[in-house]
Nucleic acid binder design. Structure first.
Lengths: 205, 205, 205, 205
DNA sequence: TATGAATGAGCGTTCATTCAT
DNA sequence: GATGAATGAACGCTCATTCAT
């Protein structure tokens, strides 16, 4: 009798709301991301939103979480795929995946990075970054980091640098080709990781 | 009767509004940064704001512009001061100045990076970054970059990486001392700039 | 398969809804007396409510009607029981029963008297009062009211005074024991009914 | 230049809002007493309400307080005026004033007594009743209450009885003239106060 | 019958902006 | 200029009611 199980129906509405919300966010910006507008875009009534989300921020949260999840999934997958390869190749491959993930929806990237206020988004971003950082640290160890090197710190430096530069590249592109950027970022990471960062000066005697 | 020429009076009011606005922003956050509140903090009437600023965002713009100006002033001054020094020292000195500039008002830094919506802040940040980037490029050239190296690209990479990591360090501090961070950032920059970015080097064996 | 005839099923549902509604009203107050909440408490769907009641206020009406019916039943029963007794005893006995009836569910009493909006409650209360008034008038006549006395008026005065004071006693208790209150109310009624209402009496001298 | 001092301007708006609010309350009932409707009735914008009142309930509070103040002022004034007179006359005069006060705005009386929910109104009514009760108690003492009589209790009984019956008379008029009602209420009070409420039965020998 | 997802009018409230004084 | 009372569109959200299943 019932064609669709209850759960599926719920998912359907949630999807519709999230999709419309994402569209509104990307098209109109955060200022116009109002519950009424999202409802209208989803073709549902304002009240229906509240059957699926406790409040407006919960909708935003899902949108942002999913977006960040997408990005970090792609990056971590690429990194995991290349763990056996030589450092130079690994670096280039991972940077390439990062750029690709970030290029995929530049509009939403802009909104997430430049428009969204509040701790909520910040925390989601930090969670994503932590996840990537932890994997990166594991990779560093696996690749045989120099003994004594603080891999947590190194991962922190590399991940945040790669992320910031990739975002920067998409949102405010410098006068350079994609290939150049990949090369430079990969080079930045490689040189940093292989370089002796803190030789204490000429070894005593 | 009138002690101050009109222009000076105007400047006075603008200063008062901007100063109060910055205080409100830092104390109460962006959510409470309302024109009425800024006016009250400045001891003027809401209407008076509109004699000096076309709208609310214009006030915010000035506040942010000035803040970023302060930061970039400190960084460029430090960089200029050390132009003659050896690369390692120059890097450390500049990074140290950048961190110092960014530590100076962490509350406002957080608001600017995590709370403010909209393109205005982004544009101001880009202007600031461009300024620093241009000086950095000059420094690179002066320090004798390797022939054939794209100094614009190199400056882009270094400046954005340094900025992002410094901000990250202040807003979401990793488990590391300030000294460590300075070392790592300086090392990141140094290794990148002195490293051979993409030639594979003489094949081993 | 069907164990219960349709009508009985209906009664069952009505009972369930009314009982749950009363519980919600007493537990949560009128502000939270929403159709959804009543439905949930009754373990039925919101839509089902509308199979048995035309709208929300109809549910409330039944709840209030029943509650007032309960109270007036107890009072009229007590009054009827004591019709043969001497006036003083009759008065005290009836007042005592009234207080007892009203004390029985002070929470619902408060809600009915202080929270419920609208004419529906008023009408139900008037119906209850009329019923009691009519019995009281009959009692007055039976007890041999003074000839010429307007028994309808007397019943009106006594019944409303007793009711109002009893409710007042429960909802905003004065500094007095229950016994005192019974005495005072009974005395009020007795003196009023036995008193010569308006002739000034023989001039003092 | 300024024709009206600031305070007067404020008072003007407050008056306008309160008057319109009272009109809306009386005309449309509490259910339709919405801020938007009150604003519209007052010919001001919704926002203006909030310059003078912190929220909706504050408007209602002023309306109700004023109304109750009016009523209690009239009653206490009448009572005070007649303190020297003989009990019968005093009773009749005060009851007459009470009825007059309550007749003055039967529509608002109905709304206040039958429609308004919530503690707010209840508390205001209690405050008014207490005020009258205290004066009544003083009057009782002045008039030479029988020694040993609990004047607080007596005032409680009389005031609440008079109030309830007067309200009842206006809202659900029995089949009686105003004069009759005055007589009956005055008689109720007089007989109660002059009667020996609790003679302990035949004095022991 | 019973369901419960969907509705949508309307709520109380805010605040950037205006303009008569 | 400076004022600040007034504005009003728009917000996030609720809940009595409906109707396709």
């Amino acid at each position: 009798m019932r064609k669709v199980p209850r759960q599926a129906r719920s998912r359907e509405m949630v999807e519709r709301i999230v999709a419309s919300g994402r569209a509104v966010l990307a098209r109109d910006g955060y200022d116009l991301f109002s519950t009424n507008r999202v409802a209208e875009a989803a073709g549902v009534s304002p009240g229906s939103l509240y059957q699926y989300f406790p409040d407006k921020s919960a909708i935003l949260e899902v949108i942002v979480d999913r977006y960040l999840q997408e990005v970090s999934d792609r990056v971590t997958a690429a990194l995991a795929d290349q763990l056996g390869k030589p450092p130079a190749e690994l670096a280039r491959g991972t940077v390439d995946a990062l750029l690709a993930a970030i290029e995929a929806d530049p509009v939403l990237l802009r909104v997430v990075h430049e428009e969204l206020p509040g701790r909520q988004v910040v925390q989601a971003r930090r969670a994503m970054e932590r996840r990537v950082r932890e994997l990166a640290r594991a990779a560093l160890t696996l690749q045989g980091a120099e003994p004594g090197r603080d891999t947590a710190m190194a991962a922190w430096v590399v991940v945040h640098a790669m992320e910031a530069l990739s975002v920067q590249w998409v949102l405010d592109p410098p006068d350079a080709t994609r290939e150049q950027v990949v090369e430079e970022l990969a080079g930045l990471a490689e040189n940093y990781l292989s370089g002796r960062t803190q030789e204490p000066g000429p070894a005593p005697r």
